[in-house]
Design a protein around this nucleic acid. Structure first.
Length: 688
DNA sequence: AAAAAAC
C-alpha cells in the first residue's frame, strides 16, 4: 500500500502540504501558538506581529478542494520563494497534489521511468535510451556514456536536445547546481597547497590541460570559471599525483575530482587491462576504471548526477549503486557498461561478494567525505574495498581523498591509501567573510515549536532547512508544520529511499521550501539557495553544527543560521562560544553565563565536564601533518614533527604535528596507543 | 544518544 502511494508520487505526508479540508485555515491550531511574551525563557525579540505573511498564514484559507496550488503561491510576488524557479510555485492551475504526481524522483531515471514513460514518442528506443530500471541508478545511459572509444580515438555520440535538457536543464534553471553561484565571492576562498612538487594552479577551463569534449560539457553545465579547489586539483590530478583535500561540498570539489579524472579518461581511453574472467562465466563482471565512494545515498546520487553531465556523449559510462534500492536494476545497469562507479560502501561490498564487480581495473579512487564515512563506521568496509579485494595497489592507481576535517583517523587512512600526496586545504566558503549570520537563541524545549513558527513567518522567503536530532522528531515536527499550513516535508533514515529522494527534490525545486532533516542531510548535500538553517535541536558534536550551518551561505551567497539553545545543550556551550568568536559572530550573554555555570564545579574532573580543552576542535584541524625534508616549504609553519617524508624510509611519512611522532613508516598496523591532541601543542584550530 | 548504512 505504501508502495502504491509512492507510485503516485505521493506519501501521506506530502499530500498534506495544504491544510486538510476539515481545518479552517493554516492556523487551525492557533491555540498551540504561544505568544513570545508568554514563553518561559527570554532572549527572543518579538515577532513582527501576526504577519510576516499578512493575513491568514502562508496559505490563507484553502479553497474547497484544500489543495489548490494558489494556496502556496507567494502573496507578495515571486520573492516569497526565491530560488524556486520554475518549480517555485505550483504549476499554474495545478495543485500540490498534482505537483507531487508529476514529480520525478531524482536518481531514478529522470525522464525515463514510470511517470514519463507513457509520454515517450512511439518508436523511441528504450533500450538504447531509457534504462528500464525504475530502481536507483536506473538512469542507465541517458546520453551519458553513449560515445565510443574506437581505434585509439574518442568518438563522441550525437548531440541530443532532449537529453541535454534532462541533464543540464533549461538555461538559468535555478534548481540546477551551477546557478545561483556568486562567482566573485569564490575568489575569496583561500587555498593552500603543500607537498613536494605542487603544480601551479590553472585559471581557466582550457585545453591544455583539459580535454575539449569535457570543456564543452562544462560549458553546457554553465560553469564558467574553476572554483579555487578546482584550480588546484585539476593540475594536481592530471599531473598524476595523489591528493588529500580538506574541502567542503560547497567549494566545488565534485568537479574538482570529476574534471581531471574524466579529462584523462576522454584522452586516454579505457584502461588497458584485459578483463580476466573464466570462459564459462555467465555474466560480465563490471570492471570500472574509476571508483568514487561516499557515505550517504543522497550524496552518491548527487555525485552521479554531476558525473552524468560531464560524461555526456563520451565513451565513459557513469553508474551508481547504493542500498535501499532494488539491486536487480543496479545489476542490469552495471552490466550494460560501467566505467565510472559511484557507490556507498555497503552496497559495493555486496556487489563484490556477488562477483559482479571487479576493482582490478581501477585507476582512480576517490573517497569523498572521508571523515563522515569513518564517523559512520565504514572503515572496515572501506579497508576491505581498498586493501582486501583486487584493487591495484597505491602505486598502480591515483587516490584522492576529500574530507572536511583532518583528524587522526583520516590521517591514518591517508597514510595507508595515498602516496606522496599533495595536501590541499580549502578555506570554507563563507564563514570567514561572514556569509553566514549565526544566531543563537535561548529556547526551552517546550517553546521550540512556537518560536519556529515565528521564524518561518519572519523569514518566510527562501529555502529553510530545519535540523532535529531524532527521526521521530523529524516526523512529528514536519507533521506539525504541515498542519500549521506550511509546505514542509522531512528526510531521515526511516523514510524509504523513494521518499527521501522525493523530499529532497521537492525542497530543491522549491515546491516544499521547508525541509525537516536529521543528520542524514547534515553533510555533503549541495542544495543551492538554502537561505536559512535552523538547528531546532543542537547536535552534541560541534563539528556537526558546522556542517549543518554549512548547508547555507554556499557558493559565495549569504545565509542565516538560527540555533535553539537551552541547558540541555550545555555540553557544547564552550565549543560553540569559541566557534562564534572565531567566525566573528555575536556571542549572546546567556551562553557565557551557562558556560561559567558548567565549568564552575568539578572543572575537568568528570569526563567532558569543564570543556577540557583537550579535544578542543583539534579533531577538526585542516593542516598538513607531514613535514618535508629539503627544499620544500610547508604551507603551514608550526606543523612540527617528524616523519621522513621522502626521507628514504620507503614511504614512511608519518609525521604527527604534535609531540607524538610515531614512526609510521614500515609496518602498517603500527598505530595504537593514545594520541595527543592532533593539533599539537597550542594547536590553533583553523578548520576553515 | 542518535543517526547512517547491505541483505
Amino acid at each position: 500500500m505504501a508502495e502504491q502511494l509512492n507510485m503516485n508520487g505521493l506519501s501521506l505526508k506530502d499530500s498534506q502540504h495544504a491544510p486538510q479540508p476539515g481545518q479552517q485555515n493554516g492556523f487551525a491550531e492557533r491555540s498551540a501558538y504561544i505568544p513570545p511574551h508568554m514563553r518561559s525563557a527570554g532572549g527572543r525579540p518579538a515577532p513582527p506581529g501576526p504577519g510576516g505573511f499578512d493575513g491568514p498564514a502562508p496559505g490563507g484559507p484553502p479553497p474547497a478542494n484544500g489543495l489548490n496550488g494558489s494556496a502556496w503561491a507567494p502573496q507578495n510576488g515571486e520573492s516569497a520563494y526565491p530560488g524556486a524557479g520554475r518549480g517555485g510555485a505550483p504549476p499554474a492551475g495545478g495543485n500540490w497534489n498534482a505537483g507531487a504526481q508529476s514529480f520525478t524522483p531524482s536518481g531514478r531515471g529522470g525522464g525515463n521511468n514510470w511517470d514519463n514513460s507513457p509520454q515517450l514518442p512511439s518508436g523511441f528506443n528504450r533500450n538504447a535510451y531509457g534504462a528500464p530500471g525504475g530502481g536507483s541508478g536506473g538512469r542507465g545511459n541517458t546520453g551519458a556514456g553513449d560515445g565510443q572509444w574506437r581505434d585509439g580515438k574518442h568518438v563522441p555520440g550525437a548531440p541530443n536536445p532532449r537529453v541535454e535538457r534532462d541533464l543540464f536543464g533549461e538555461p538559468n534553471d535555478p534548481s540546477k547546481a551551477a546557478s545561483g553561484i556568486n562567482f566573485s565571492n569564490y575568489d575569496d576562498i583561500p587555498v593552500e597547497a603543500s607537498g613536494q612538487g605542487v603544480p601551479e594552479p590553472i585559471l581557466t577551463f582550457t585545453n591544455p590541460p583539459l580535454d575539449d569534449h569535457l570543456i564543452s560539457n562544462i560549458e553546457l553545465a554553465g560553469y564558467k570559471v574553476p572554483t579555487p579547489v578546482q584550480k588546484y586539483s585539476i593540475p594536481i590530478v592530471m599531473g598524476g599525483r595523489d591528493l588529500m583535500a580538506c574541502a567542503q561540498t560547497g567549494s566545488g570539489k565534485t568537479g574538482g575530482f570529476l574534471f581531471p579524472i574524466l579529462s584523462q579518461a576522454f584522452q586516454n581511453g579505457p584502461s588497458g587491462a584485459v578483463p580476466q574472467q573464466g570462459g564459462f562465466q555467465r555474466q560480465r563482471k563490471a570492471m570500472p576504471t574509476s571508483l568514487i565512494l561516499a557515505p550517504t545515498r543522497e550524496l552518491v546520487s548527487q555525485i552521479h548526477e554531476e558525473a552524468r553531465k560531464f560524461c555526456y556523449r563520451s565513451w565513459v559510462r557513469p553508474c551508481v549503486v547504493y542500498g535501499g534500492a532494488d539491486i536487480g536494476s543496479q545489476l542490469r545497469q552495471i552490466e550494460r557498461g560501467c566505467d565510472l562507479l559511484v557507490a556507498t560502501p555497503g552496497r559495493l561490498v555486496d556487489l563484490i561478494e556477488r562477483g559482479r564487480i571487479s576493482l582490478a581495473n581501477i585507476k582512480y579512487l576517490v573517497l569523498d567525505e572521508a571523515d563522515r564515512m569513518l564517523d559512520m563506521g565504514f572503515e572496515p568496509q572501506i579497508r576491505r574495498i581498498v586493501e582486501g579485494e583486487d584493487m591495484p595497489r597505491t602505486d598502480q592507481r591515483q587516490t584522492l581523498m576529500f574530507s572536511a576535517t583532518f583528524p587522526r583517523d583520516i590521517q591514518m587512512l591517508a597514510r595507508d591509501f595515498l602516496r606522496e600526496y599533495v595536501f590541499l586545504s580549502v578555506g570554507r566558503v563563507g564563514s570567514t567573510s561572514e556569509n553566514i549570520t549565526q544566531k543563537i537563541e535561548y529556547v526551552e524545549d517546550i517553546d521550540k515549536r512556537s518560536v519556529l513558527l515565528d521564524i518561518l513567518h519572519t523569514h518566510g522567503a527562501g529555502l529553510t532547512l530545519i535540523f532535529v536530532e531524532t527521526k521521530r522528531m523529524a516526523d512529528s515536527l514536519s507533521d506539525y508544520l504541515i498542519n500549521q499550513g506550511f509546505p514542509a516535508t522531512s528526510i531521515h533514515g526511516d523514510r524509504t529511499q523513494r521518499e527521501r529522494e522525493k523530499a529532497l527534490e521537492m525542497f530543491r525545486n522549491g515546491r516544499c521550501p521547508i525541509l525537516v532533516a536529521t543528520a542524514v542531510a547534515a553533510r555533503g548535500l549541495d542544495i543551492p539557495n538554502v537561505k536559512h538553517v535552523v538547528n531546532y535541536d543542537l547536535p552534541t558534536d560541534i563539528d556537526d553544527y558546522v556542517h549543518r550551518i554549512g548547508r547555507t551561505g554556499r557558493a559565495g551567497n549569504t545565509g542565516i543560521s538560527t540555533a535553539f539553545f537551552n541547558r540541555g545543550n550545555r555540553g557544547v556551550v564552550r565549543d560553540l562560544i569559541d566557534l562564534l568568536k572565531e567566525a566573528n559572530q555575536e556571542v549572546p550573554g546567556f551562553l557565557e553565563s551557562i558556560a561559567r555555570e558548567s565549568s564552575g564545579f568539578g572543572g575537568s574532573g568528570g569526563g567532558r565536564g569543564g570543556r577540557s580543552g583537550g579535544r578542543g576542535r583539534g579533531s577538526a584541524a585542516m593542516k598538513d601533518v607531514r613535514s618535508f625534508g629539503g627544499g620544500q616549504r610547508p604551507a603551514y609553519a608550526g606543523s612540527g614533527g617528524m616523519g621522513g617524508y621522502g626521507g628514504g624510509s620507503g614511504g614512511g611519512y608519518g609525521g604527527q604535528s604534535g609531540g607524538m611522532g610515531m614512526g609510521m613508516g614500515g609496518g602498517g598496523g603500527g598505530y595504537g596507543g593514545s594520541y595527543g591532541n592532533p593539533t599539537g601543542p597550542g594547536g590553533a584550530s583553523s578548520w576553515w
